[in-house]
Design a protein around this nucleic acid. Structure first.
Length: 480
RNA sequence: CGGGGAGUGGCGCAGCUUGGUUAGCGCGCCUGCUUUGGGAGCAGGAGGCCGCGGGUUCGAAUCCCGCCUCCCCGACCA
């Protein structure tokens, strides 16, 4: 039966954290690098990231943004120009002080994000209102020294996309933040099948140097929150610090309004924790490196015919645009393969053996629903797109239901404490930093966002009883 | 930085308390045969400076001192 040592993982209910750590390694998504906190994305995990990238990149380009690449090393003095920004990042910086065999005159910071370099270049490139808006994006790695790393979720180096734009007016910048937020929602919902809550960050939780930060918060299967994407309205803060200005149509010089927005490889960790179960990963079909795996079954003598049928089926599936793999390994048993592909979260498994072929059928098993069914061979390919789509929808539904069932409207301190121990608390809040801090200190929960879709509401703060701020409820949760 | 745990073939571990043969087990790996519809079986085989440095001792994986690294839990964060 179960041999946890090789393919099995600790059950979620027993130890969610151990479940996650074991799964990421055993499913071969990622591994640890030689430097503490660094991460290797293995081919399976990287493929997942590439699929996220493709979805995101298409949306970024479709909304008029262009990709570019900016350098990883930033002069330390540059970072200092925006006061709040440095302050926010100072503890996490990796600094190069020695290079080319000498101590450097000025230390170089390995980018924790690129607002400062890009700001510098934007200032050079923008002079007229005709140069605006400037809509740019880069795919890059960034380094933030993490005290407590976790694979995919919090590593010292990670991959992301960072959009940076400059606009002539505050209104345009505000609209840009919404544009970015919209495609993050699409990627989370329509690709990752993760239901998210979109809203504003409270002042204390805002990005260092931003006037406004919008976030997408997802719920993991342990009830904790994960920020799936974020976009910032930087106002004129960086424009002022980096002299990003332009001459308007009337001949007057004005500061630009800039934005930045990012989604990172952390989303992969989010997919693991939003959908996975005790058997392993459950990948959404849209992003699964393999949407279908075909496992040929047969004894010697029968196997040649089975393999031929399996390959032919796979070719037809591939021709229909489906990512498919035939597991032709002959040194592991079919049973082993079933378990392994379940661990790796492949949405659909097709078992093909002599019995199936004799009946002109295939045995189809879905990862999410478990269970098996016999499908006429001729129907397998034509039915597959709808099947994958149905699975995708079911996953999203489950994600949504799970979050809703674990989100509680609370009116008191006790209610808040109880709610954040299992999920999200929706509460009126006074909006003071002291109260936020007290909640964090005593429950480890933080305000995740002020949801856009929450109805207007006022009343006493659930934590301290003072009058509420924001005009609506705030979501509190423990977060990754 | 605080608290906890661990470093022994590729992986997971035992051995250490109470020093003493050739350092053992499971998994994986290699070869052969038999197998193949939910983690295959048998036989044979390869693979170890027991984290590093010092010390005690006739003798150290085991005892003592120092150091390093990793993991988990908390404080900072996409």
């Amino acid at each position: 039966m179960a041999k946890r040592s090789e393919l099995g993982v600790t059950p979620q209910s027993e130890d969610f954290s151990a479940w996650y750590n074991e799964l990421v390694l055993k499913a071969e998504l990622a591994d640890r690098g030689p430097v503490r906190g660094t991460m290797v994305l293995r081919p399976y995990g990287y493929r997942l990231w590439e699929l996220v990238q493709a979805e995101l990149d298409g949306r970024i380009k479709a909304t008029g943004h262009e990709n570019a690449y900016f350098p990883m090393l930033i002069p330390e003095s540059h970072l200092r120009r925006e006061a709040e920004h440095v302050e926010g990042f100072a503890p996490e910086l990796a600094v190069v002080t020695h290079a080319g065999g000498h101590d450097l005159e000025e230390p170089l910071v390995v980018r924790p994000t690129s607002e400062t370099v890009i700001g510098e270049l934007f200032a050079r490139w923008i002079s007229s209102y005709r140069d605006l808006p400037l809509l740019m994006n880069q795919w890059a790695n960034v380094v933030r020294w993490e005290l407590r790393p976790r694979l995919l979720l919090r590593t010292t180096e990670f991959l992301w996309q960072e959009g940076h734009t400059a606009h002539a007016s505050a209104e345009e910048a505000a609209a840009e933040v919404l544009t970015a937020t919209r495609f993050y929602e699409e990627v989370a919902r329509d690709c990752a099948a993760i239901s998210v809550i979109t809203g504003d960050k409270t002042p204390r939780e805002r990005f260092a140097g931003a006037d406004r930060t919008v976030t997408l918060e997802a719920m993991m299967r342990d009830g904790r929150a994960l920020q799936a994407g974020t976009s910032h309205d930087l106002g004129t803060n960086f424009a002022r610090a980096f002299d990003i200005d332009f001459t308007n149509a009337e001949g007057a010089v004005e500061l630009c309004h800039t934005t930045s927005w990012g989604m990172s490889s952390r989303l992969i960790g989010g997919i693991v924790m939003a959908h996975g179960d005790d058997s392993g990963l459950v990948l959404p079909p849209v992003l699964a490196p393999f949407q279908v795996v075909v496992v040929p079954i047969g004894r010697e003598g029968e196997l040649a015919g089975v393999l031929e049928a399996a390959r032919s089926l796979a070719l037809d599936l591939a021709a229909a645009g489906i990512r498919v793999k035939v597991d032709e390994r002959d040194h592991v048993s079919p049973g082993f393969k079933f378990n392994e592909w379940e661990l790796r979260g492949v949405p659909v498994r097709i078992e093909l053996g002599p019995r199936d072929l004799a009946a002109s059928k295939a045995t189809v098993a879905e990862r999410l629903a478990q269970g098996r069914e016999q499908v006429p061979l001729a129907d397998v390919v034509p039915d597959m797109p709808a099947r994958l789509d149905r699975i995708q929808q079911a996953l999203l539904e489950r994600s949504k239901r799970f979050r809703e069932e674990r989100t509680f409207s609370v009116e008191s301190w006790g209610g808040l404490v109880e709610a954040v121990s299992v999920g999200f608390a929706s509460a009126l809040h006074c909006g003071t930093e002291e109260c936020e801090r007290r909640i964090q200190d005593e429950t480890t929960a933080t305000p995740r966002c002020i949801p856009w879709d929450a109805p207007e509401e006022t009343g006493p703060c659930a934590a301290c009883g003072k009058p509420s701020a924001y005009g609506r409820r705030v979501i509190f949760a423990r977060a990754y």
